[in-house]
């Protein structure tokens, strides 16, 4: 028992050390860029109107948040400009996911089960997917005006189709014997959907959600620039018009940081704890 436990612990520690080393390596390019940035400020190669000092970017946070209290952040008080933009972008992503993911999975499973439905849905899906999210922006503005509806529409349009398609393909790739074995154990259609199709399609679904959030996030930022009146995209756009380059930098950096955090903290662990645990994906040993 204790020998096994020791081996287990050692294995865990080895894994953690390996992971730490991975993170350390991944941090190097960021540190190099940061160093170059500071060096540029110090040497004065490129003027602050093009590349603002790091210090000015950090200060921009306080300028945008001037007069904002902790409670004001949660209440999205008008003095909390910076956090308001972040929260409205995140809110849209959240809403887009809450609506788009279940809808995509639901219809994807149905289409994966029925040849007829998938024949009906596939061409229009290919068509819709071919038109990038941003291409819809002008039309969406005509339909919904500038604001929440337009940005949400763009996001949904991206998230839904990606989740739908990946779910459809995932369901189709589930071996028929899984379905047959559950049927011969007395399972009904609902058992098949919840215990065979959805878990079997999960690797594909997670890929779809990951792609959906990734592309959706990019499309959203673009949509906010021209079709929004809040959000990080809008903030960048307005700041650029006013030549507040440090705010543009702040916004751009944040877009990247938010995506990295979402992917590393939510999506990657989700993949680990379900799919890898079940041995559904090949993984290098």
């Amino acid at each position: 028992m204790s020998a096994a436990a020791t081996t287990f612990m050692a294995g865990r520690m080895g894994l953690d050390r390996k992971r730490m080393r991975g993170i350390g390596l991944g941090a190097i390019p960021f540190l190099v860029l940061l160093g170059a940035w500071e060096l540029n400020t110090f040497m004065g190669w490129l003027k602050p109107v093009y590349i603002p000092p790091l210090r000015a970017v950090v200060d921009a946070v306080f300028t945008l948040q001037e007069g904002c209290s902790a409670l004001g952040i949660l209440g999205m008080h008008e003095s909390c400009l910076f956090t308001n933009h972040i929260l409205s972008s995140l809110g849209r992503v959240g809403l887009g996911l809450v609506v788009g993911v279940p809808l995509g999975i639901g219809l994807g499973v149905l289409a994966g089960m029925s040849r007829r439905l998938s024949n009906a849905m596939e061409p229009v899906g290919v068509f819709a997917n071919a038109i990038s999210g941003i291409a819809w922006v002008p039309l969406a503005i005509v339909w919904f005006g500038v604001g929440w509806f337009t940005t949400l529409f763009i996001l949904l349009n991206t998230v839904f189709w990606l989740v739908f398609f990946n779910t459809l393909l995932g369901v189709r790739s589930v071996p028929r014997t899984y379905e047959h074995s559950v049927l011969t154990l007395g399972g009904n259609r609902w058992h098949i959907i919840s215990q065979v199709y959805i878990p079997g399609a999960l690797p594909s679904i997670v890929t779809g959600v990951r792609m959906g959030i990734g592309f959706g996030w990019r499309a959203l930022i673009a949509a906010e620039m021209i079709g929004g009146n809040t959000g990080l995209g809008f903030m960048i756009f307005v700041s650029a018009n006013e030549y507040k380059v440090e705010e543009v930098f702040l916004g751009v950096l944040l877009i990247g940081i938010i995506w990295m955090v979402t992917d590393r903290i939510i999506l990657v662990p989700l993949e680990k704890w379900t799919i890898e645990r079940w041995g559904l994906v090949w993984r290098p040993s």
Binding site: Y178, H180, S181, V182, T184, L185, G186, Q195, P199, W278
Partner: peptide, 28 residues
């Protein structure tokens, strides 16, 4: 149609990868 009065053992690829041994065996 299929029913629990006729149990089938297939050639391969039939137990569900997302269920543990215990949960596969207790599935019926």
């Amino acid at each position: 149609g299929p029913g629990p009065d006729r149990g089938v053992v297939f050639q391969e690829h039939a137990i569900l990868p997302w269920r543990t041994v215990e949960r596969n065996i207790g599935h019926g």
